[in-house]
Design a protein around this nucleic acid. Structure first.
Lengths: 342, 342
DNA sequence: CTGAAAGCGCTTACAG
DNA sequence: CTGAAAGCGCTTACAG
C-alpha cells in the first residue's frame, strides 16, 4: 500500500523530521544516516504526497512575479489568458502573484520592473525578456539569489535559467516556407516577406527559416522583397502600397510579424483583378477576421495560451515541489490554421 | 488575507464541520443556516484550498477506471501517453487507477470490461466508447449510480455524461477540404478519398466535411473516388493499386483514416513519372516517416496526447474537488502539420 | 545532529 | 441538525 514518510521513519528507526530532512537534502543530518534513509525510502518505493507537502508549506507563502512586454500588443492577449489561468490554479495552492505589463520590449523599463518585484520579495519570476546583456545580467543575479526565472515567448541567451517556454522560431520560418511551397502547387510564384525588424531575434530567425526552405525545396518561388515595417500599421500600409505598384508580378505576401491590418488595407485598395494570397503568423482578432472572410489563406500559430500557462505552471511546481521540467527548453507547437480550425 | 473555513465558521457562529457541509451541499444542515453560511462565505471571498481538501480525502481513496479501444492501433499511442501522464499526476493526489485496453471498437468486449471495472469499485470511468445503444445504456447506468464518465477521442450520443474530450470531426473534414483547396493553387485537381468505413461516425463526418468544403469553395477539384479500406493495410494496398490504374488523371490522395502504409506502398510501386500528392490524418510513425521523406505533404492532427491527458484530468478533478469543466464537450485543436512541425 | 510536537485547511465518523 | 475531534502527510521552529 501507500508508503508515507512515517513508514520510512519506522523502517529507518529515526523520526519523521529526520526523514524529511534527509529526503529533501536539507542541512543538518548525519550524511551516513541520510544516505541510509534515502536508500530505504527508495526500496520502499516512497513517493512524496504533493497535497500534504503543499499544505504544510502554506505557512510560508510564496509569490510569483510576472512581467510581460505585452501592452498594446494584441498577440499577447492569449498569453495573458494562459498566465491568469495558471495563476488562479496556483492560488488554490496558496501561491500569490504580482503581474506587471509594460509597453514594448524596453530593457530599461524591464529592469526597473524586476527591481520593483524584488522589493516585493517574489520567490520566482516569469518574464518575456529583452535579449540584452543588462537584462541577462539581472536574470543571472536572480538565479544566483535562488529566485528561479522562466522566460516565455522569447528567450534570453547566455543565462542558465529554470526554463524557456515558447516556439522555435527557425522552425516556425520553415513551416511558412513549406506552406508557401505547398500552396504553389509547383507553379511559379513571387512572394514578398514582411517582418517587423530584423533586429529582433525571433523575426530574423523566422525570415531565415523561410528563405532556407524556399531555397532548398522550392525553386519555383522567388522572394521579390523583404520589408521591415517596425510592426507599425501605418508604415506597413504605405510600404505594401508602394510594393504592389512596384512589383505587379507579386502573387503572395507573408506577414511574419505585426502590421497585418495596415498591410491588408493596402492590398484591398489596390486589388484590381488579381488575387493576392496572404499568409500570416499568429491569431489576433484582425487575422481571425481576415481568415474567415478569405482574405488571409492561412496563419501559423505558436500556442500563446500555453506559453503563458506552462510558464507559470512550471515555476509554480518548482516553488511548490522543487520539480524541474525535463528539458529547460519547453517548445510549444507550431501549427497551421485555416478558417476552419481557429 | 487568506480566508479559511475557520473564518467563515467564526463569522457565522457555527462549527467548521457545519460550514463544510453547507458549502459543499452535503445533507444534514438546516437549509436556513446553510443559506446564511453560503452568503457569509461569499462575502468573505472564501475559496477552498485544494491541497487541504485533497489531503483530507486521502482517507477515502478513489479509483479511476480507463478503457481504451486501442490495441493494435498506433494512433492511440499518444492518447495512452496522455492518459498515463495524467494518471501519474493523479497518483500524487492519492487517486488509484485501473487501465484496460481492448482490440477494436467492439461493443460486447467493452461492456464486459466496464462490468469488470465496476466489480473493482471504480469511482469514475474514462473511455473510448463504441457508439451503440447497449453501451449508451450502460453508461447511463454508471452516471445514475454516481460514477461519472468521460469519453475521449470519440463520443457516445444520447447519454449525458461528465465530458467528451476530442475533436469535431466535421470541422476536421473541412480543414482537409481547405487544405486540398489551398494546395491546388486554383488549378484543376482530381482527388481520391480513402476512409476506413462510413459506418464509423467519425469517418463519415470527416468525409462529409471534406466534400462540403470542396463543393462550396473549390470547384476546380473533383472527387474521383471514395474508397473504404476497413483500416486494413492489405486491402488498402490493393484498392489503391487498382485505383491508380483506373484513374490515371488522379493528382491527390487523402487518407482520412488508417491503411496509410498499404496505400502508400501501392502509390510507390505504380509511380511512373507523375508525382501524386498525399495528405493524411494524424501522426503515426508511418505518417511521420513519410512526411519527413516528402511522400506525404501534410497531415491533419487532433492532439491525441491532450485527449488522453485532459480526459483523465477532468475526471480526476471532478472526483477530487467536484469541479466540472465549463462545457461538457472539450474540443481538442485540429491543426495541419508539415515535415517541419511534427 | 535528532526528536517531539504543532500546524497547514479540510472532511467525516461519531456522539449528542 | 450540530459540534468536537481525529486525521490526511509533510514541514519546520524549537528544545535538547
Amino acid at each position: 500500500m501507500k508508503v508515507t514518510i512515517r513508514e520510512v521513519a519506522e523502517a529507518a528507526n529515526v523520526s519523521r523530521g529526520t526523514v524529511d530532512r534527509a529526503l529533501n537534502h536539507r542541512p543538518g543530518v548525519n550524511p551516513q544516516v541520510a544516505e541510509r534513509i534515502i536508500k530505504i525510502a527508495d526500496e520502499l518505493g516512497y513517493k512524496p504526497d504533493m497535497a500534504a507537502r503543499t499544505l504544510a508549506n502554506k505557512r510560508y507563502t510564496k509569490t510569483i512575479g510576472v512581467i510581460l512586454c505585452s501592452e498594446g500588443n494584441p498577440f499577447f492577449n492569449d498569453v495573458i489568458n494562459g498566465v491568469n489561468n495558471a495563476l488562479e490554479e496556483m492560488g488554490h495552492f496558496g501561491i500569490q502573484n504580482i503581474v506587471r505589463k509594460i509597453k514594448g520590449f524596453d530593457a530599461d523599463l524591464l529592469l526597473k520592473e524586476i527591481d520593483g518585484l524584488l522589493a516585493e520579495k517574489i520567490s520566482g519570476l516569469v518574464i518575456t525578456p529583452v535579449n540584452s546583456p543588462n537584462v541577462a545580467q539581472k536574470i543571472q543575479e536572480l538565479e544566483d539569489a535562488n529566485i528561479p526565472v522562466v522566460t516565455i515567448n522569447t528567450d534570453i541567451s547566455s543565462v542558465k535559467h529554470l526554463a524557456y517556454v515558447g516556439c522555435d522560431y527557425i522552425t516556425s520560418g520553415c513551416v511558412a516556407g513549406e506552406l508557401l511551397g505547398m500552396m504553389s502547387n509547383g507553379f511559379e510564384e513571387h512572394v514578398a516577406l514582411i517582418i517587423g525588424s530584423s533586429m529582433v531575434m525571433a523575426q530574423e530567425q523566422r525570415l531565415r527559416g523561410i528563405k532556407k526552405t524556399l531555397k532548398r525545396d522550392y525553386s519555383n518561388i522567388t522572394v521579390e522583397a523583404v520589408i521591415e515595417n517596425d510592426d507599425d500599421d501605418q508604415k506597413s500600409y504605405e510600404q505594401v502600397k508602394a510594393l504592389l505598384k512596384e512589383k505587379p508580378e507579386l502573387t503572395t505576401i507573408c506577414f511574419a510579424s505585426a502590421g497585418v491590418e495596415g498591410g491588408i488595407k493596402a492590398v484591398r485598395e489596390s486589388e484590381c483583378g488579381r488575387k493576392l494570397r496572404i499568409i500570416t503568423y499568429d491569431l489576433t482578432d484582425i487575422v481571425r477576421e481576415n481568415l474567415k472572410s478569405g482574405v488571409v489563406s492561412a496563419t501559423i500559430c505558436q500556442e500563446p495560451f500555453r506559453q503563458g500557462f506552462l510558464g507559470v505552471e512550471i515555476l509554480g511546481r518548482y516553488l511548490l515541489y522543487g520539480t524541474k521540467p525535463k528539458e529547460s527548453t519547453v517548445k510549444t507547437h507550431i501549427f497551421i490554421a485555416t478558417k476552419y480550425n481557429l
